[in-house]
């Protein structure tokens, strides 16, 4: 349909280029404007819950239940936040969650990089069989081994300890699979050359493979940190003392106790969300490109 506008143009002119310019222009005027409107409306729906959370968290109790709803509090207060820190022991929750998430993420990424390298770059007897057997555990829902794993944890005396939170999740399939995919982008000649120069296997892994996997590494670190930070079911089942709670379990318990103090609950939710969101927005370029880079070959 765009072609018909240009019927009368002399043949010497590059009609294709003109055509393309015209379609872009038309798209901008008709098409893209609609795109922006629809996406903008959608984006508002996406952020409204966050905005409402922050708005409520600064309102005194009386204002949270007033009609009509107001975006900006009339008497903004930070007392809700003070309440959360006092009653939910927020500092402790932050420290616990950060500690566990960091340790788990280091283990997850290191073991996955190592195994990804081994399955991606070495040829040995039984390699594929071992790889596919490990990979097959990916499909098992956590609910299937939740109960036996819990009973085993109790049996070895790890109930209510961080060991129970960390040890069963040292190895992870998804990151291993992604690193293995990523290994195909690293030339094998490089590794062979290092070997000829006398580099040991661990040296090659630490000094060549890991630095060369940066793109995959950063994305996976970000995602695993987020997943570990947001983990809920296993900590809920295993940890019973309040001073060992992680942030998700702490928030769930807190919401149960203060169910009708909406300002306080929203302050708690903000405190649980904001650190991880800030971290992600800081590194978001990496992540969104990284998902494309590592995520979608298979």
């Amino acid at each position: 349909m765009a072609n018909q506008d240009f019927v009368g143009i002399p043949s010497q002119v590059d009609t294709r280029a003109l055509n393309r310019g015209a379609t872009d222009f038309q798209r901008l005027r008709r098409g893209l404007l609609i795109n922006y409107l629809v996406l903008g409306a959608g984006a508002i729906l996406m952020v409204v819950p966050f905005i409402w959370m922050i708005s409520t968290s600064f309102k005194p109790q009386a204002e949270t239940v007033s009609f009509p709803p107001r975006l900006f509090p009339i008497n903004p207060t930070i007392s809700n936040y003070i309440d959360v820190f006092d009653r939910a022991n927020m500092g402790r929750l932050y420290w616990n969650t950060t500690f566990i998430s960091v340790i788990k993420t280091i283990f997850n990424i290191y073991t996955s990089a190592l195994l990804g390298y081994i399955f991606g770059k070495f040829v040995f007897r039984g390699r594929d069989i071992i790889f596919y057997i490990l990979l097959s555990t990916w499909i098992i829902p956590f609910e299937v081994y939740l109960i036996p794993l819990y009973l085993m944890t109790v049996q070895v005396g790890w109930a209510d300890t961080y060991t129970a939170l960390i040890v069963p999740e040292i190895f992870t399939i998804y990151a291993m699979f992604m690193f293995r995919q990523f290994m195909y982008t690293i030339p094998t000649e490089l590794i062979d050359a290092a070997r000829i120069d006398g580099a040991g296997e661990w040296y090659i892994f630490h000094r060549i493979i890991i630095p060369l996997s940066r793109a995959a590494l950063f994305t996976l670190i970000a995602f695993y940190f987020m997943w570990n930070w947001n983990d809920f079911l296993w900590p809920l089942v295993v940890i019973s003392s309040h001073d060992k709670y992680v942030i998700t379990v702490g928030l769930a318990t807190f919401v149960g106790e203060f169910w009708n103090q909406y300002g306080v609950i929203m302050a708690g939710a903000s405190l649980a969300i904001v650190p991880i969101l800030a971290l992600f927005i800081a590194v978001q370029r990496f992540i969104i490109e990284g998902v494309v880079l590592t995520g979608l070959k298979g």
């Binding site: 959370m53 769930a252 969300i273």
Partner: peptide, 8 residues
């Protein structure tokens, strides 16, 4: 985290 989203 879904826990926080669900709270909101």
């Amino acid at each position: 985290s879904v826990i926080a989203s669900a709270t909101i």
